[in-house]
Write a protein that binds this DNA or RNA. Sequence first.
DNA 1: TATTAGTTAATAATAATTATTAATTAAAAA
DNA 2: TTTTTAATTAATAATTATTATTAACTAATA
Lengths: 143, 143
Amino acid sequence: MVNIQEQIELFIKKCRVKNLNVTPQRLTIYRALLSDGSHPNPDAIHKKIIQEHPTISFSTVYKTLEAFERTGIISLVNNLHDTMRYDPITKQHHHIICVKCKKIIDVFDEELDFIKIPQSVTDGNRLLGFKVHFNVICSNCRE
Amino acid sequence: MVNIQEQIELFIKKCRVKNLNVTPQRLTIYRALLSDGSHPNPDAIHKKIIQEHPTISFSTVYKTLEAFERTGIISLVNNLHDTMRYDPITKQHHHIICVKCKKIIDVFDEELDFIKIPQSVTDGNRLLGFKVHFNVICSNCRE
DNA sequence: TATTAGTTAATAATAATTATTAATTAAAAA
DNA sequence: TTTTTAATTAATAATTATTATTAACTAATA
Ligand SMILES: [Mn+2]
Ligand SMILES: [Mn+2]
Ligand SMILES: [Zn+2]
Ligand SMILES: [Zn+2]
């Protein structure tokens, strides 16, 4: 567990390395994300920081998050948020996902179904199933 | 490996059980999905069937896919398609996702990182990492 | 056949995201 | 320090995906 101050300093270093200016807006957005365990969306982040930074624009939030993600400063939980993707197969299986072209390939593997489910997963929740997402860059997508 | 005809018959049975009329539109949509390994989105499915069924409406495709998914006849690859969800944590970890309220909870578990990666995953692709999604219904979401 | 409920199609409305542009600010060069 | 340039921000417009609404149509049932 690293404290907030250390995280912020690490953030500033990362920005320097990635040639991103450390602006008040960016600090505000990063801090909002750090103090939020909910994996928020751009709208939630904007709502959260609007008090501390009343003039900040929505598009700034979008652009900033995009820049952070692109440079690896933060991560995107759901690579496949763009659009719904349907599958005729209903029995549990797993997927290879190209993070660039969003191609999805099935993975059927007996062994994957035997992972040990952590305590926290079943604790209070009804577990419906699990899926492993293998994030890759596919052969077509590396120039 | 089950053949197409058997799959269709199974589909028809499932529809009956779920009180969904088996209409030409629904058959067309299901067949399109069956013959498509790409995990298509509603738009792709619509484009695909427009030749065989030129009058079919876009909203029918949406409603049909939604009905199939709701009743478990097909599955949705990405429960979190609604909106982007960001995470300040960049090191590999996993998530519990409530399929109803879309709450996301972190899972840090050493053991999960030691799963055996199937051959097909690394075959031609550059593996960036993997994530396990535990789909649950959380305690708040069961009435 | 008449009634009812389910389905489809057309369309409108909403929400999320991306693109465009101009104003502002920060960094680099002179 | 002044000038120039590039990066960032903010405001806004445009696009895309999805959901909602409604009316026409079809199938099931009484
Ligand atoms: Mn699949
Ligand atoms: Mn997380
Ligand atoms: Zn690719
Ligand atoms: Zn929930």
